[in-house]
Structures are given as structure tokens and as C-alpha cells.
Design a protein around this nucleic acid. Structure first.
Lengths: 143, 143
DNA sequence: TTGCAATCGATTGAGTACAATTAAATTGTA
DNA sequence: TACAATTTAATTGTACTCAATCGATTGCAA
């Protein structure tokens, strides 16, 4: 037990988390390339597919992203014709993001992505459920 | 059970992983600010503290980072006076990264960081160990 | 030994990501 | 009603991340 053992990469909990996160996002890439989205664009579209219409603020809360990240992502999705960006009539400060027909149609091409991803994972059902539970628990630390 | 339930953010395993990874890196920031490192610089220094001297290639393998990311990080660490960068005499293609005295001395100021971080986590010992085990398992999918 | 494939770091470009600041709109208050 | 405080998206600056490519070096085989 050396004085500096706590600084070894193998003894960190954060590093495998960081590495796995990057690894999974990279694993998504070939599937997301097929539908022309990046991972960040994909999770933004997932929220829109579920909610149909949402303010930029709420979207940022769902994804844990601030306007510095979200603004260029939403402008890109708009330029792809998948969403519309418009100020709210009730409160001009709010930006309302909504799906276009093209954006809604993309859902049918995205619906296979989760299954393709699960097929790549080496986790058992139990470990996946356990991982999900622990990560949810861990997220409370930042909320 | 809707046709598109698999596309809900709440049903993804990747998203909590991605969110937790970002959350933890952000939680490190105040502690790493005290020693003047970013998270990426910190994990690079951890490898050097453990190995003392390593090629850029090996360092990239340890951290799962390619030269596009690593080159500017190492140049920054060099400009801070923490490391040296020099071509190998045996093989001029290899870049050998080594600690300076200043870089080695920084370890004594970094040694408290892991404990400060654990104090921020809401995980039990058991869950932390379980998380570690599952993430290691998951990483096999990308290796 | 000469030519070619492989290796390695550096560079470039696109896309995140976050902190800090700015500007516009709204709300609360005197 | 003026005006301060708050809220929100956008902008700016710094840093990370990866894919693709390039140039130099090395190793191997004809």
C-alpha cells in the first residue's frame, strides 16, 4: 500500500466511467452515421421524439447541456431540416424547438439503433440493470 | 409498450453513463483547479506518476486517446514545466514523455484529490465496487 | 541495397462541452 | 409607471475528442 496508490489510474472509479462513456458513444457512430446524426444530435432528437415540442431551456435540462453546447447543435439540426426554432409568443426569451415532418419521419429509421447497440454490449441483463441502477444513484450526487 | 419506447432517453443505458461521466469530470474541477490541471491533464499525469517515463503511443493506449487529442495536451503540460517531450534515440518516430522535478513534485499536491472526490459521491462502498466491476466488464466490448 | 509497407506523431476539420459574459425580455417592486 | 432583479438564449474563449490525412522514420523483402 504505497502512499500514492490512490493516484493509480486502476484505482479510480471515474476513469472507467469516462472511458466507457467515450467507448459507447464511439460504438454508436456507425449506426448513427446511417441516419446522419452525431450522438449529441441523436439524444436531442430522442427528447423531441418523445415530447414533440420543447423549450431550449427544458431540453438543456433533460440532456444536462447548457446553451453554449445546445445552440450550435440545434442550429445544425435546423439546417438539416429536422427541427424548427422559434421564439415563444408568450415569452420572447424562450426558444421553442419542434419537429418537422422530416424530423418525425427520421424516428422510423432510428428505431433500430438501440437494438443494434445492445447487440454490441458484452453485459448480461442483470449487470445492465445493476449498472443502470447505480448510475441513477450516482447522478443524484450532481443534481 | 409503444413501438418507440426503446428510443426514450430513460430507457437508454448509454445516456446515464454519458451524463455521469460529464458530472464526475465537472465535480473534479474545483479540486483540479487548485493544482492547475484539467481532467485530461490529470489522468495523463497519473500515468506518468506511476510509470515515470512512457512513450506517447503507450500513454495514448492507457488513456484511450489518440495523437490528435494527446499532442496538444502534452504540449500544454510541457509549457507548464511538468513534463519533457523528446524523440527516442532508438526510434526517432517515438516520442518519450517524462516527468520534470516540478511534475514529480505536483504529485504531493494531487494526492488528496481522490479522497476529496470520494467524499462528494453518494455511492455506498458496495455500489462503487459493483460499478467498477461492471464498467471493467463493459470495457471489454470496446477492446 | 533499393523499394515498399508499416508505424508513429503532428496537423486539420467538425463537433462537443463548459465557464463567463452579453443582450433582450420579463417580472417584481417602490 | 420607472427601475432593479431575474430569466433566457446567444456569444466568446479555452479545451477536449475523434476521423482523416500527412510526413518522417523504420523494417522488411526482392
Amino acid at each position: 500500500m504505497g502512499k500514492y496508490d490512490c493516484l493509480k489510474l486502476d484505482n479510480q472509479i471515474c476513469f472507467p466511467l469516462y472511458a466507457c462513456s467515450k467507448g459507447i458513444v464511439k460504438a454508436y457512430k456507425p449506426f448513427l452515421d446511417e441516419i446522419g446524426l452525431t450522438y449529441t444530435q441523436y439524444i436531442a432528437m430522442m427528447v423531441l421524439w418523445e415530447h414533440g415540442e420543447i423549450s431550449s431551456k427544458e431540453l438543456g435540462n433533460c440532456l444536462y447541456l447548457d446553451s453554449g453546447t445546445l445552440t450550435p447543435v440545434l442550429k445544425t439540426l435546423e439546417s438539416k431540416g429536422l427541427i424548427t426554432r422559434a421564439r415563444s409568443h408568450e415569452d420572447e426569451r424562450n426558444l421553442i424547438v419542434a419537429l418537422t415532418n422530416s424530423g418525425l419521419a427520421l424516428r422510423d429509421r432510428a428505431v433500430d439503433v438501440p437494438a443494434k447497440m445492445s447487440a454490441c454490449s458484452s453485459l448480461s441483463q442483470e449487470d445492465a440493470a445493476e449498472l443502470y441502477r447505480i448510475l441513477r444513484e450516482l447522478m443524484k450526487s450532481f443534481a
